[in-house]
């Protein structure tokens, strides 16, 4: 659980009430969408768009308490802007994303 900010999630639960479960599933759908986009943009070597997608992803991840994922997105954003982005980096983000979503699903089921 170390990759998620539990205190922040508790606060979100408090603020969003019934909507909290919707928030989690929206995040999971969104982040799957974003991973697909990132891979696509990497294949097309569209570094500008890739950097923007990583930027947005960073914001959303941070807001939901996935700070490690947010930090990885920031590194991806910076590297992509410089046109210096490796597949290995994307795989890393993908792994972190899968792990975060897994944990969020458990939290959502328990609430």
């Amino acid at each position: 659980m170390s990759h998620l900010d539990q205190a922040l999630l508790d606060e979100l639960k408090l603020v969003l009430e019934d909507e909290f479960v919707d928030l989690i599933s929206a995040f999971i759908d969104d982040s799957n969408e974003r991973m697909k986009l990132i891979r696509q943009q990497f294949e097309q070597q569209d570094w500008t768009q890739l950097s923007r997608t990583a930027h947005s992803f960073k914001g959303s991840a941070g807001n939901i308490g996935a700070q490690v994922l947010a930090d990885m997105c920031m590194a991806l954003e910076d590297n992509a802007r410089d046109g210096n982005c490796s597949l290995q980096m994307i795989e890393q983000v993908d792994q972190e994303q899968a792990s975060v979503c897994q944990q969020l699903k458990i939290i959502a089921n328990n609430s």
């Binding site: 979100l12 603020v15 969003l16 909507e19 919707d22 928030l23 929206a26 995040f27 969104d30 947005s56 914001g59 959303s60 807001n63 939901i64």
Partner: peptide
């Protein structure tokens, strides 16, 4: 905000 989750979170905070 184009990000649905960000919009949800901010809206909830503002509403509260």
């Amino acid at each position: 905000d184009d990000s649905e989750t960000d919009r949800m979170i901010l809206s909830a905070i503002v509403r509260q």
